[in-house]
């Protein structure tokens, strides 16, 4: 029977393996800590810009956006997170009636961040920002109105 299975052998092997374990934790006791102090490092925190935090509709300085109210994003969304209300406006020169966006509601609570809406948008009117601080107390506050 090898030394390892004898009575003394098990004790020696046990003590050796326990000691190596404790050596590792002791070294860890004195190494630099890896914790990121979240609230303190808010200014310097760098989140990858591809991170999908919340859907936003960028507006240029005069406050109009690129959305043409085609409803493609509403259709491709798997669980009905986006709801667009439009109204038809007769254009003066051409006289044709054109759909204009009235309200662009986006339910952040139901979104699953699958980016199908952004891929489907022909005009690139909506995109994901990496703003992750969205916790709220009231469920209704999660329904955001994206167009100004």
């Amino acid at each position: 029977m090898s030394f390892k299975n004898t009575y003394i052998g098990t004790i020696v092997y046990a003590v050796k393996s326990l000691a190596t374990g404790m050596k590792v934790t002791l070294c860890e006791f004195f190494t630099r800590k890896v914790t990121e102090h979240y609230p303190e490092n808010r200014k310097t925190l760098k989140i990858s810009d591809r991170h999908r935090g919340v859907l936003v509709m960028p507006h240029d300085d005069e406050g109009n956006n690129k959305c043409i109210a085609c409803g493609l994003c509403q259709m491709t969304c798997p669980n009905g997170t986006i709801s667009i209300t439009t109204k038809s406006v007769t254009d003066e020169e051409t006289g044709k009636s054109k759909k204009v966006l009235v309200e662009y509601n986006y339910d952040l609570g139901a979104c699953m961040f699958c980016q199908l809406c952004v891929n489907a948008c022909p005009k690139g009117a909506i995109e994901f920002s990496n703003e992750f601080e969205n916790a709220v107390f009231d469920r209704k506050k999660l329904v955001l109105k994206l167009n100004k």
Binding site: T25, E28, S48, H51, R52, F113, Q115
Partner: peptide, 28 residues
């Protein structure tokens, strides 16, 4: 402690994943 050491290395992979795909756990 074994759990915490495993997660410490795992966080490094999650950083790479997030850099490229935008998601830590669910990459899409």
């Amino acid at each position: 402690t074994g759990f915490i050491y495993g997660f410490r290395e795992r966080e490094k992979i999650l950083d790479i994943m997030e850099e490229v795909t935008g998601g830590r756990l669910i990459q899409n």
